[in-house]
Computed example of a mutant assay.
Amino acid sequence: MELRHLRYFLAVAEAENFTKAAETLGIGQPPLSQQIKALETELDVELFKRTARGAELTVAGAVFADEARRVLSDADRAVRAAKRAARGETGHLRVGFTGTAAFNEHVSGLIRRFREEYPEAELSLHEATSGVLLDSVEAGQLDVVIVRPIRRVADAVHQREWRDEPMFVALPTAHPLASRKRIALKELAEELFVQVPREAGGTLFDDIFAACAAEGFSPKLGQPAPQMSSAVTLVAAGLGISIVPESITQVRVAGVVYRALVARGLRARLALASRRDDPSAVVRNFLSLA
């Protein structure tokens, strides 16, 4: 039994006439009669009573008609669901992001647009350091990640730079430079830097070192911070100063002020990364919104 047999049967049931049903279906009346007869033979049930005016459903035929409509409806629903999945309108998308990216308005905006455009897609969010996130993409545990770019990524991972933002200095409120609106990087040459280490912070760590080198000094590293937001807490504790992306200035900690940093070419960069061979339409949809 095929779905077309059910459609033929229902056409006759609704028209109550083989000739009219054949016209509706666009086939000849004899082939239609043969298909219905073959269906009755397969079921070993009489579905229609042939009358002078056409055909009437038997009791068994009426029951079969209800079930046939349900089967065809389920089949149509399955087709629509498959097409939605193929277009990336449904499915499960696993997105990871660094702790600092969570404060970036472009990140929240991207996630919001995806939820608005594809409300039927399931979205799960995960936070970790850039290195851990990129490893998770390579392992197939996450689909897309928003990271501080890393210079070398696995061949299976595609990383592309997406956004950047200016840098600020987090200072203790009692610091001599705290009264200034803008601070030149070279003025921090004698300060103790509280930064997220290279293995957790991606290229941001190296970019800060390169900018300092361009100003003729190497940063003095103090207590490392596991995350950018915790670096601000360490600054409040008087353990040094920290260079942070602008988005981190939303983190308000008593005893800390943020001042714009004047540093040629120094920007906090964000990148999007996913698996190169990922055929998922839902991943493509997310990336297209970016």
Rank of each mutant, 00 (worst) to 15 (best):
Q35L: 07
Q35V: 07
Q35R: 02
I36D: 05
I36N: 02
K37P: 01
K37W: 04
A38M: 02
A38D: 11
A38H: 01
L39A: 08
L39E: 11
L39Y: 14
E40V: 06
T41E: 00
T41M: 04
E42G: 02
E42Q: 14
E42R: 15
E42K: 15
E42H: 14
L43F: 02
L43I: 07
L43H: 02
L43Q: 03
L43S: 04
D44G: 06
D44N: 15
D44P: 12
V45Y: 05
V45L: 04
V45E: 02
E46D: 03
E46P: 03
L47A: 10
F48M: 07
F48Y: 04
F48H: 08
K49W: 02
R50D: 02
R50E: 05
T51Y: 04
A52G: 03
A52I: 04
R53A: 09
R53D: 02
R53H: 12
R53W: 03
R53T: 10
G54H: 01
G54V: 00
A55C: 12
E56D: 05
E56T: 12
L57P: 06
L57Y: 04
L57S: 11
L57T: 06
T58A: 00
T58Y: 07
T58C: 07
V59T: 05
V59Q: 09
V59S: 12
A60S: 07
A60M: 05
A60Q: 04
A60R: 11
G61N: 04
A62V: 01
A62D: 03
V63Q: 11
V63T: 07
V63R: 01
V63G: 04
V63F: 00
V63P: 02
F64V: 01
F64I: 12
F64D: 04
A65S: 01
A65D: 07
A65V: 00
D66S: 01
D66F: 07
D66A: 08
D66L: 09
E67V: 05
E67Y: 09
A68K: 09
A68W: 07
R69K: 10
R69L: 02
R70H: 06
R70Y: 13
R70S: 06
R70L: 08
V71M: 03
V71S: 03
V71F: 15
V71E: 08
V71N: 01
L72W: 05
S73W: 09
S73C: 10
S73M: 06
D74V: 08
D74C: 08
D74Y: 11
A75L: 05
A75G: 07
A75M: 13
D76R: 12
D76A: 13
D76W: 03
D76C: 06
D76H: 11
D76K: 13
R77K: 13
A78C: 06
A78N: 06
R80E: 13
R80M: 01
A81F: 11
A81V: 00
A81C: 10
A82F: 04
K83E: 15
K83I: 14
R84C: 10
R84L: 08
R84P: 12
A85T: 15
A85K: 14
A85G: 00
A85L: 11
A85W: 08
A85Q: 14
A86M: 01
A86C: 05
R87E: 13
R87K: 09
R87V: 06
R87M: 11
G88C: 00
G88K: 14
E89A: 13
E89T: 03
E89L: 14
E89S: 11
G91E: 02
G91H: 09
H92T: 11
H92V: 15
L93N: 12
L93A: 15
